[in-house]
């Protein structure tokens, strides 16, 4: 049980570091645009080389045959 005297303060320091990192991220503008960043992971760069047939119809926009 005595290890708690060491472990809990350690956890507090880690929490403090995490908050510091988060504050740095917020202040460097990383959270200014939550919309683009939420979608960025879906923007594949190399898919253009793969078969585009299927993907075009996936947008459900009408297109001519």
């Amino acid at each position: 049980m005595d290890s708690l005297y060491f472990l809990i303060p350690l956890a507090l320091i880690l929490t403090g570091l995490a908050i510091k990192c988060l504050f740095w991220a917020v202040n460097s503008g990383q959270y200014d645009d939550l919309d683009t960043e939420a979608h960025r992971i879906l923007f594949d760069e190399d898919l253009i080389k793969t078969k585009p047939e299927k993907s075009a119809s996936a947008t459900s926009k009408p297109h001519s045959k």
């Binding site: 585009p52 047939e53 993907s55 075009a56 119809s57 926009k61 009408p62 297109h63 001519s64």
Partner: peptide
């Protein structure tokens, strides 16, 4: 509907663009 802006395409207009292998 226009592939780009989704507004209706007027009759008799012809502005095709080929995108990802399809003509839109």
């Amino acid at each position: 509907d226009c592939y780009h802006c989704s507004l209706p395409v007027p009759a008799n207009s012809d502005y095709p663009v080929e995108i990802n292998g399809h003509t839109h």
